[in-house]
Amino acid sequence: MNVNLYHALGFAAGIIVTLLVCLLVRCLWLGKLRVRSEYDERQKAAQGVAYRNAFWTVVGYMLLGWLLNLFGVELSASPIFLFAGVVLGILVYVVSCIVLDAYMGLNENPRWWVVVTAVLAAVNLVCALCNIHNGAVWTANLLCGLLLVAVLITFCVRALLRPNREEDEE
């Protein structure tokens, strides 16, 4: 009886989630919730530079993994090593964009972005601490948390180093 009840509840939850996802996609499709970042021409060019930096960083990381593999280190075959490469690429891209003033779009609110990133970093780090408590140190949560913290630090340092907004010479 209980099994049937749980089955029915699970089925209902699946339908509800599907309906919510469909509603969200429909709203996005119609543009009601569309939040698209707008970048000017300099920012788009700077993002290209950042992408190139990230690409070559990941290539270098993969070469390092290949060399480690040659010397008998099996680290490069582990999923976390591959995931760390992705995280490293994202980190280089985002940091490059922030340094080149090309990360925040013209229509974006930096304070809102900082708050959301800080919350996401905290959630990931708490999950990572739970994983460490359970014996797993290097997890995706830890890498994502460290990535977000590094991005936040870069963003704050860049904001602090930037001269007064109305100052001409930067």
Binding site: E41, D101, E169, E170
Partner: peptide
Amino acid sequence: GVSRQTINGIEKGSYNPTIR
């Protein structure tokens, strides 16, 4: 319709704007 940093870059000569 651009960022302040873009105008700053043009004035400093560190960014070469498009004709548009």
